[in-house]
């Protein structure tokens, strides 16, 4: 089943910083259309006056003492960096 939806795939892919191929766009458009059609059923539920629930934790807020603790050493923190030089991560030029 394929359903029309208001999903603007190109716009959303750009927001998500995800380059999609033409084949992916076509496939996702159809599949996500089906999924969005399925979730439409939530419109049947009366949610008037219902508070949204962000998580199931009974914890409300946690304060941590503002004290210094040892962190990762630089070498360990940079161990997985794809490119590095002088204890810094190398990235493409940001400002011309």
């Amino acid at each position: 089943m394929s359903t029309k939806s208001d999903l603007n795939l190109e716009y959303v892919a750009n927001l998500a910083r995800l380059a999609l191929t033409g084949a992916e766009r076509e496939k996702f458009s159809r599949q996500l259309g089906d999924i969005l059609h399925y979730v439409e059923k939530l419109k049947q539920v009366n949610v008037t006056g219902v508070e949204p629930m962000a998580h199931a934790s009974p914890v409300c807020n946690i304060w941590a003492a503002d004290t210094a603790r040892p962190g990762l050493p630089v070498a360990a923190a940079l161990r997985n960096a794809p490119a590095q030089r002088d204890h810094m991560i190398v990235v493409p030029k940001v400002v011309e």
Partner: peptide, 25 residues
Amino acid sequence: ILGTHVLSSGYYDAYYMRAQKVRTL
């Protein structure tokens, strides 16, 4: 893609917020 869409401006209330309310129920 789906998650970005349901959080995006204009769709947040219809999808994400509504889902959170049904989660409460």
